[in-house]
Amino acid sequence: MASRRERLRAQGLRPVQHWVPDLRDPKVLADIRREAAMLSRHPEDAVIDEWLDTVRDPADWS
Rank of each mutant, 00 (worst) to 15 (best):
T54D: 14
A59L: 04
V16Q: 10
W19G: 00
D31M: 09
D25C: 07
A2H: 11
K27N: 01
E35M: 05
K27T: 09
Q11M: 14
D57C: 03
A2P: 11
Q11Y: 06
H42A: 06
P21R: 06
A59I: 00
P26V: 03
L8T: 02
M1V: 05
R24I: 00
Q17N: 02
A59N: 04
E44Y: 03
M1N: 03
D22A: 09
D45L: 14
R7P: 00
D49T: 09
E44S: 00
M38G: 11
I48A: 12
V20D: 08
E35T: 03
S40K: 15
A36I: 07
H18S: 12
D53Y: 15
R5T: 03
V55P: 11
D31L: 14
D31F: 06
R34S: 11
S3I: 02
S40L: 13
P15Q: 09
L52R: 08
V20M: 10
R56T: 15
I48L: 15
A36Q: 12
R5F: 01
E50G: 12
R56K: 09
L8S: 00
V55D: 06
P43R: 14
W51F: 14
H18E: 09
E50N: 09
R33M: 06
K27C: 02
W61T: 04
L29G: 00
P58W: 06
A59F: 02
R4I: 09
A46G: 07
R34T: 12
W61S: 08
R4W: 08
R56P: 05
R33K: 12
A37T: 09
S40V: 07
I48T: 13
L13T: 02
R56I: 09
P58C: 00
R34M: 04
V20Y: 04
L29R: 05
Q17K: 07
P15E: 09
R4S: 04
E35N: 07
R14T: 04
R14K: 05
A59R: 11
D60A: 10
D53I: 10
L29A: 01
R14C: 02
Q11F: 06
E6Q: 13
D57R: 14
V20F: 05
R5I: 01
V55Q: 04
K27F: 04
S3R: 10
P21E: 01
K27P: 00
K27S: 05
A59H: 06
V55R: 12
V55E: 09
P21H: 01
A2R: 14
V47Q: 15
D31E: 13
L23G: 03
A30M: 00
D53R: 15
M38T: 11
T54C: 08
W61G: 10
W61C: 07
A36T: 11
R5G: 14
L13A: 10
D57E: 08
R41T: 12
R34P: 00
R56L: 13
S40A: 15
H42P: 01
R5Q: 12
R41Q: 15
P43D: 13
S40R: 15
P15T: 03
W19F: 07
Q11A: 08
D25G: 06
D53T: 12
